[in-house]
Design a protein around this nucleic acid. Structure first.
Lengths: 201, 201
DNA sequence: GTCTATACTCGGATAGAC
DNA sequence: GTCTATCCGAGTATAGAC
């Protein structure tokens, strides 16, 4: 049984590629059609308008972007091991879709009203679980007392930033014969060590 | 002697505002004209094309974005104090222009060829100074051994990320009666403590 | 220098044949 | 479902009066 790729799926893949690289405004329907190797009219046949097609992609990608680390945080692993796995999971997710963070954050910037709800609400949910966990550890005297919100932002920043800033550091990396891939490979260890060391009593 | 604002300056300010909020592709010349309260034809009289006007703004903002922390790094302050001031300087810069990091990074994403050179080269220069400094401290056994590149990325990520992700956390913050301003106020201390603690031998 | 009016181009969307 | 041809609006840019 071979996998048959429907026209609709072909279009969605092409749209994903173009939208994620250029953002909504800079993307062209004809580019999407060309990428999908079909006619531009077919786009409209399947998805009516550019807005609807974009909304479809954005919703799907928002899902992917949402942290599915609640299961890690609520497991019975030691706290520092939870942090390590949390970092690992986030970086793994973005490694498989490096455009994702810029795509989501940029769309939220240029479109403050639009789909802010989805990703925001998801992150807020994760944050509440995270905060309760941190406060419990702090009360038990297992870790240093820091603002949970700051800590959460720090973890997200440390994991996402390399992907957001890649174009800026790409040239510098190449000049020194280092690769982005290698950088990311090492990043899980670097970030989790950094966070853990900063919290140890 | 009162400050006279020329038409050209008025246009540049309006263009800055619009471009930085929406990015190049989503910005409209008529919005810029409206913001500047002048006629759209005047835009072209002063700057010929949208591209040229954008290039002007992008160049100016790239300058601002460039880290001017070399003077801090080459001062004779203690190493950890240099780190603290570096964080403080970066956050202060972005606080005065919160759109800046998203504007620059996003343009570099959607336009890989364009103006990557400026900001990239500037950051590369700063990085080399930073790396030498870190390696010297490590050789002297004053701090833990970590990859300087990872550390540099971490510092940048910790300082920039809140501004990049603001739209995502805004709602969550409001829900808990915290303000973004307050968050940023506290961030300098949080970030520098975190970095320093993670490096202490 | 600043305006109004208008030309031109690009890109999203539709009609209609097959 | 898929195509070609075409429409139409939005948005950039120019001409020309003042």
């Amino acid at each position: 049984m071979e996998t048959v790729i429907s026209t609709e799926e072909t279009i969605l893949e092409a749209a994903r590629k173009v939208f994620m690289q250029k953002g909504f405004a800079a993307s062209r329907m004809c580019d999407i059609a060309k990428t999908a190797r079909i006619n531009q009219a077919l786009l409209h046949y399947y998805f009516r308008t550019k807005d609807k097609l974009f909304a479809m992609i954005f919703d799907q990608e928002s899902q992917k972007f949402q942290s599915n680390i609640i299961s890690i945080l609520t497991s019975d692993l030691p706290f520092f091991e939870k942090l390590r796995r949390m970092v690992e999971a986030e970086i793994k997710k973005m490694r498989s879709a490096p455009y994702l963070p810029m795509f989501i954050l940029n769309e939220m910037h240029s479109n403050p009203e639009r789909q802010c709800a989805g990703p925001s609400e998801s992150h807020a949910r994760v944050y509440r679980v995270f905060r309760d966990l941190v406060e419990k550890e702090q009360a038990a005297g297992n870790i240093l007392t820091v603002c949970p919100r700051q800590l959460f932002l720090s973890i997200m920043g440390l994991t996402m930033f390399p992907f957001l800033a890649q174009p800026m550091y790409q040239a510098a990396l190449e000049a020194e014969h280092e690769s982005f891939e290698q950088l990311i490979d090492d990043r899980v260890a670097h970030v989790s060590n950094m966070i853990i060391r900063s919290l140890e009593v």
